[in-house]
Nucleic acid binder design. Structure first.
Length: 718
DNA sequence: CTTAAATACTTTTTT
DNA sequence: AGTATTTAAG
């Protein structure tokens, strides 16, 4: 193996073995290369069998890539090596071990929607008011508790006050219901292995031996259960290597604790620490800008990236009148880079803070025929029509799954309404068996003749597949099922574009199942459903597709692009939220901006709008993000797109800036920078009337908004 | 129980 | 503005 294409620090990181190792790897410092080489080194030089290596990555896609790269380095089959996300590795362990906790190995994994539906039901069961106990919020609180490893019992013993007491009850009931449904939510996936390791030390020992060397990528974004998993697995042999960058910690809202990396040495004992500070990705300009911003943060490990790359272009900043204007400027930028810059569509990415921002951009790109791909937002497998089919498959696999039962018992509509459903629930509850089982006892249900017949048929249908699913492939089961419930007719009879689209999504699902079957050795229904639950949009994304990518900054973690366009740089949007930021939240937003900028190899475009619509209402004025002013002035170009994007040859698509409020005969106009004797520097957001009588809405520093009559105000234009 | 119309809600970020 | 949920009419 050749470690010659590694720099000194990288080489050291690769060849250092024995005891805990912490690698601080800045953006673009080649950490994936270090990790893959290290794994190869472990196998080839240290002689560790590849199946004794556990490598944890942040996405399934990263896991696949890592495996590929190691295989290439070693030129041998590494399929027995454990590479995956914490969630997928845990799921794999649980398929073998969860019977120890009284679940069946056919458990299903509930996504956020499923889990919310269950929380909602528990709120109903406890006769709580959904107005005060909003399912979504209760779900978040339960998840937060789980991330802090607070059990329902512990929560119950510590809560004070009615609200918290009831939430703790919901939590407890929710956990019971999950078990009854033989289901796990995302948080359980991490917690259950820990439970097993604690209660059955012999199983822990087994996995400690199995995973003789443990590597973890993106360690700065691990939460408490993930940290405990790493610790449990490695505490005997202490052969553990974690890689991360505290400056890129952007998941604290999900329970990630940057202290896991900052206190690594303290926790794991005598360790080796290596810093990778040479960046191979970006231009000097980009790094200087990124550094200028992130160095404003207080609590960070000391390190500074440098590069031998060229100085590169300045960052470009666009001022836009609103989000519509912004999307046209994005379009022009893309066109310009394709035509003049000799770039391909897939060299560009548009990054934003919230998924909602993608729609406007998408509209323009679609209209103008620019190929694009949106990552995130409404995920394919989370679409209603897809989940309906998955619910059928899940209940075939796991008849205890009540959430799926509720979903499909009346889909497509077969005359089973709320009251009938309630009766089924009650019967199941009284006899302590599954909803599906209750259908066999419909003699005990006081329901109409028609309903009995329908339920009987539905029951027969599910049983038919329950007896045959093990022999048949997942794709053919699905095809048969669709025919049995005559779904095509259901959608086609609706005579709407929307219904047809839904039907085509269902067909795409069938294709993806067939695809899965062909490409996997393990191709049963169970494996497919597991894969689907843990798959994200980014895992489905094909880098080489010739299309511009649109995604959130969170999704862009770990990726790189020649050209990065960051939109929506406005106070309240990015940084997101009310201005009364606590330092910690603001610092995380700043790290997010750092992550966004450091995705770029060559060019960065930034944009902000002077007004933006929220929920499709009228545009409300906005102020430039503070992050813009934190960039070194001399490294940022322009304030107006016209000045450096030559709008030529594209007159067909030239836009007229969405006309804002009339500004004639006014001394002041929107966007002017002014100074007030009392309030200091400010910017005009709106002008009503004209001349000296004009009423000006001005935002002053500190986001203080004032309405001022022009002639009375002692304003100086700047 | 179903369908259509009114209404309420959405926008943090994701495994 | 677009989607999901609730309500009213049939």
């Amino acid at each position: 193996m050749k470690n010659t294409d590694l720099n000194l620090q990288q080489k050291k990181a690769v060849e250092l073995i024995g005891g805990p190792i912490l690698i601080f790897a800045g953006a673009g410092s080649g950490k994936t290369r270090v990790l893959t080489h290290k794994i190869a080194y472990l196998v080839e030089e240290v002689g560790l069998p590849s199946e004794n290596i556990l490598a944890v990555t942040f996405t399934n896609k990263a896991a696949d890539e890592m495996k590929q790269r190691v295989q290439k380095l070693l030129d041998m089959d590494c399929s027995s090596m454990s590479v995956g996300t914490f969630h997928s590795i845990s799921a794999r362990i649980l398929r073998r071990e969860i019977h120890l906790l009284g679940y069946s190995n056919d458990f299903v994994i509930y996504d956020q929607d499923d889990s919310r539906a269950l929380v909602k039901k528990m709120i109903g069961n406890l006769e709580l008011d959904e107005k005060s106990f909003v399912p979504k919020s209760v779900q978040t609180q339960i998840s937060n508790a789980k991330n802090k490893m607070i059990s329902p019992e512990f929560m119950a013993s510590t809560v004070e006050g009615f609200m918290d007491e009831k939430i703790s009850e919901v939590y407890s009931e929710y956990q019971k219901a999950l078990k009854q449904n033989n289901a796990l939510d995302f948080d359980d996936l991490l917690l259950k292995p820990l439970e097993i390791f604690k209660d059955f030390p012999i199983r822990l020992e087994y996995y400690q031996n199995q995973f003789r060397y443990v590597l973890v990528d993106e360690y700065q974004d691990t939460n408490r259960p993930q940290f405990e998993l790493v610790q449990a697995l490695s505490k005997e042999h202490r052969d553990v290597c974690v890689v991360g960058d505290d400056d890129q910690s952007i998941y604290s809202w999900r329970g990630a604790d940057v202290n896991n990396i900052l206190n690594f040495v303290e926790i794991f004992g005598e360790s080796q620490v290596i810093k990778l500070e040479q960046n191979y990705r970006s231009t000097k300009t980009i790094l200087e800008c990124a550094w200028a911003v992130v160095s404003k943060n207080s609590s960070r490990a000391e390190k500074k990236l440098w590069t031998e790359n060229k100085q590169g272009d300045k960052l470009a900043l666009f001022e836009c009148s609103d989000e519509r204007d912004e999307s046209w400027k994005v379009l022009n930028t893309i066109r310009n880079e394709i035509v003049q810059g000799d770039y391909d569509f897939n060299d560009l990415v548009v990054l934003y803070r919230t998924n909602a921002q993608s729609r406007v951009i998408e509209d323009v790109l679609r209209k103008e025929g620019i190929p694009y791909e949106i990552i995130g937002g409404i995920k394919f497998y989370a679409r209603k029509e897809v989940k309906d089919i998955l619910a059928y498959l899940r209940i075939i696999l796991n008849p205890s799954d009540g959430v799926s039962f509720d979903r499909i018992v009346n889909f497509p509509p077969r005359g089973i309404g709320k009251s009938t459903l309630k009766k089924i629930h009650n019967l199941a509850y009284e006899n302590d068996y599954t909803y599906l089982r209750a259908l066999g006892d419909f003699d005990y249900l006081s329901i109409g003749k028609k309903q009995k017949k329908t339920l009987h048929e539905f029951n027969q249908l599910i049983h038919k597949y329950r007896t045959s699913y093990k022999e048949e492939g997942a794709a053919s089961i699905t095809r048969d099922l669709l025919a049995d419930i005559d779904l095509q007719a259901y959608y086609e009879n609706q005579n709407s574009q929307e219904a047809l689209e839904r039907w085509s999504n269902v067909q795409e699902l069938v294709n993806s199942i067939a695809d899965f079957q062909e490409n996997r050795n393990e191709n049963s229904l169970r494996e497919f459903l597991e894969e689907v639950s843990l798959l994200t949009d980014i895992d489905r994304w094909n880098v080489s597709d010739k299309a511009v990518t649109l995604m959130t900054i969170h999704s862009a973690k770990g990726l790189e692009f020649p050209i990065v366009i960051i939109i929506g740089l406005e106070e309240g949007l990015f940084p997101l939220g009310p201005q009364s930021y606590e330092t910690e939240a603001l610092e995380e937003e700043r790290r997010l901006f750092y992550v966004a900028v450091t995705r770029a190899q060559e060019k960065v475009y930034l944009s902000y709008a002077n007004a933006r619509r929220r929920f499709g209402g009228i545009p409300s004025p906005t102020v430039q993000s503070r992050f813009i002013s934190e960039l070194p002035r001399e490294l940022v170009n322009g304030n107006n797109i016209e000045s450096y994007i030559k709008v030529k040859n594209i007159s067909r698509n030239s836009y007229t800036p969405s006309a804002s409020v009339s500004q004639q005969n006014t001394l002041f106009s929107i966007g002017d920078h002014v100074e007030h004797k009392l309030f200091g520097k400010g910017k005009i957001l709106a002008v009503e009337g004209s001349g000296g009588n004009a009423k000006l809405t001005i935002v002053f520093s500190g986001n203080i908004r004032k309405k001022i009559i022009a002639k009375y105000a002692k304003l100086t234009q700047r």
